[in-house]
Amino acid sequence: MSVNEASRWNPVDYAANAAFVPALGAPVLALLAPQTGERILDIGCGDGVLTERIVATGATVVGVDGSPEMVAAARARGIDAHVVDAQALPFGPEFDAAFSNAALHWMLDKGAVARGVFAALKPGGRYVGEMGGAGNIATLRAGLRQAVGEMGYTPPAGDPQWYPDVADFTDTYAAAGFSDVRAELIERPTPVPAGLAEWFRTFRMGFLDQSGVPPDARDPLAACAAAIAEGGLPRDADGTILADYVRLRFSMRKPD
């Protein structure tokens, strides 16, 4: 299976409108607890903002991502990053730990990812991370689909992400050979300071590609989707829209 065509990114837009993604990765980084001298694989490293924080602990980090543009941004930060499809990881048992934040839901061959991470870890190696879970951004996804249809375009059949529940995720990684697989769903209403239209333009470029939306129609379509979704979402005390994020946080280990 090739890299998900819906996973398309612009590093400039991502830095401007998605800074909350690495910022909210702090609990997962604490769960990883990287140690000086460890060799760690960052799966879906993106522009390397969170990867930098792992490197700062004294660990040696290799980042992989399917987006050449995001890998270039990570390399510009000094990250050892490579364009790699995580559904076909090329590593043997060389890493003490693996880490992933806000990326696995874009990788539709879930079993291939799980087996590749297992192969990349040394015996006893740990794997922690966070991804979109069951129910993630349901209101935003529905609003975008409705807007695409109302404006005369055809969205792809089904959502091009894997947002698992705990049982699906646990079964997938246990089948790959991992032990002590722990996962939990966390509802996390998340402020979107730049507004929903910018969120759609940043996070759903690939979806708009697949829907056949031309560049000159994307701004009005994003505005339409934002207007639809806003009615179903709460706001914080400052009036900022809270997106309906649901995260799946996990940890596991490769048996000795």
Rank of each mutant, 00 (worst) to 15 (best):
P90K: 10
A72V: 03
N101K: 01
E94K: 09
N101M: 08
V61K: 10
D80A: 15
A76P: 07
A81Q: 00
E94M: 14
A98H: 01
A98L: 06
V83S: 07
A59L: 14
V71A: 03
P90E: 06
L104N: 02
F91P: 10
H82D: 01
E52G: 15
P68R: 08
E94L: 12
A56P: 11
I79S: 04
A72F: 02
H105P: 12
E52L: 15
H105K: 12
L104D: 01
D80E: 13
D85C: 06
A86M: 15
A59I: 11
V62S: 01
R75E: 07
D80G: 08
R75T: 02
A81E: 00
A72T: 13
N101W: 09
A59C: 11
G78A: 08
L89H: 06
V49Q: 12
G63V: 00
A73K: 01
E94H: 11
W106L: 14
D65H: 03
Q87P: 10
D80I: 08
I79C: 05
T60L: 15
H82I: 04
V64Y: 00
V84I: 13
I54M: 11
T51V: 03
I54T: 12
R53I: 07
P93Y: 04
G48Y: 00
E94R: 14
A86C: 14
A102R: 04
A72C: 02
V49P: 02
A88V: 09
L89S: 06
S67A: 11
I54E: 05
T60V: 15
A56N: 13
P68H: 09
A86Q: 10
T51N: 07
R75M: 03
R77I: 02
